[in-house]
Design a protein around this nucleic acid. Structure first.
Lengths: 75, 75
DNA sequence: TAGTTGGTAATCATTAATGATAATCGAAAA
DNA sequence: TTTTCGATTATCATTAATGATTACCAACTA
């Protein structure tokens, strides 16, 4: 269902934001490390997109986390 | 680039195929359960696409696995 | 005041994921 | 032989993720 998809997007966005803020990394710094624009990072954290595996992998790598840490207990 | 997108795609495709075959589920059955075509499941398992989080979530759900099981120790 | 920092939002172009259909193949029956 | 099953590949259309730019905001702060 569309609602499930949206909730999933919101959940992953919040998870990424939480992990980023725990490390005191600005959006723009993480974005730059992942090689995308800060505006796109904001969009992702706001749950407005359904990120691809590769996007998630880049974020995990730059947060020094295994990929599964991004999705454990996510919804 | 630190990681290779194509290798990531191949790895997730192989992982999904492995988990599906362990359960003796045909591609077309899993595809139907996830609500996409068998041809698209073949494409995904062949590592020809970079699946979205939502696509992975549907597959995990229909394999009766937590999402993280799809990505643990993946590359 | 002006300038910086961290973040948000709108928009547009490009790329790629996905939806969908059809053709094909090998193997195993029947 | 023909049929069925599981899978693969190709193709095309549609949708959405991503790339990129711009403008804006609030809170500092020199």
């Amino acid at each position: 269902m569309t609602l499930d998809k949206k909730n999933l997007q919101i959940a992953i966005g919040q998870r990424i934001r939480q992990l980023r803020e725990e490390r005191n990394i600005p959006q723009q710094d993480l974005a730059a490390a992942c090689d995308f624009e800060k505006s796109n990072m904001a969009r992702l954290e706001a749950g407005k997109t359904n990120p691809t595996l590769y996007t998630l992998k880049k974020i995990a790598d730059n947060l020094n986390l295994p990929l599964e840490a991004l999705v454990i207990d996510l919804l």
